[in-house]
């Protein structure tokens, strides 16, 4: 579903390598957690997938489409929520969702069905008619998630999705991710909350200084570092090496 092939990205004329030779494959139906310390290259990698940054080297394919040569086909398969969902303050929630749904050409029938379920699940039905500028951070996050899911994308990409969500919404959202995967779709998300990754992800990848230093199921990672602890202890062990 998502494949990074020898991806590199550098800033400041090549002086700072943000991502360095990243090779990674995320399979259909999988929830994949992308972990790493601050500044490891998680957000840069995600931004390259969704077209916000261009890679210097390598190839990224989404649902079989090269993000460089077929960017629109690749983007059609993605639902994306960035780490800080800056949405249009001067649009209402409903106007924003309609805009996104129009761009993805979601039919009236489908958007009604999906929207009703999502706004009720995230408890934002009372705010959809208000300007987004009046939303709290958590509500913006919920609206961004609703927009990302409105076209039922084969690949959901989320950068720190749990930030700003209240416990109930976070729980619902985890349920939603599981459901998304049960339907054969894929979730690729970055997080610092290792408990969530441990309980939710089928596999995780750990990135440090732009390089993928570990990747696999929790058992595989435990085996790799030779200890039986939690994901947190595995993460600490791997990133301190």
């Amino acid at each position: 579903m998502l494949r990074f092939q020898n991806i590199s990205k550098a800033y400041q004329k090549g002086k700072v390598k943000a991502v360095d030779g990243l090779d990674l494959t995320v399979n259909p139906g999988e929830i994949f957690g992308f972990l790493g310390p601050n500044g490891a290259g998680k957000t840069t990698s995600i931004k390259m997938v969704v077209g916000l940054l261009r890679q210097d080297e390598g190839k990224i394919t989404v649902n079989g489409h090269d993000t460089h040569s077929e960017p629109l086909r690749a983007k059609e398969s993605i639902g994306f929520v960035p780490d800080n969902p800056d949405l249009y303050d001067k649009l209402t929630g409903m106007e924003y969702i309609n805009f996104i749904a129009d761009v993805y050409q979601v039919s009236s029938f489908e958007r009604r069905q999906r929207l009703e379920r999502l706004v009720n699940m995230f408890e934002i039905s009372g705010a959809m008619g208000d300007l987004i500028g009046s939303f709290s951070h958590g509500m913006k996050q919920k609206l961004a998630l609703t927009a990302a899911l409105i076209h039922e994308p084969p690949l959901l990409i989320l950068d720190e999705p749990m930030v700003g969500l209240d416990p109930r919404s976070a729980h619902l959202f985890k349920e939603l991710m599981n459901e998304h995967c049960r339907q054969g779709r894929t979730v690729f998300f970055s997080t610092h909350i290792l408990d969530v990754a441990e309980r939710l992800c089928h596999r995780v990848g750990i990135i440090k200084k732009g390089k993928l230093i570990a990747c696999g199921t929790l058992d595989e990672l435990r085996h790799q570092v030779g200890q039986k602890g939690s994901l947190e202890s595995v993460f600490l062990e791997v990133t301190e090496q």
């Binding site: 969704v50 077209g51 916000l52 960017p71 086909r73 983007k75 994306f80 800056d86 249009y88 761009v103």
Partner: peptide, 8 residues
Amino acid sequence: WIIKSLPV
């Protein structure tokens, strides 16, 4: 980021 990430 919104217009850049959309398939348009």
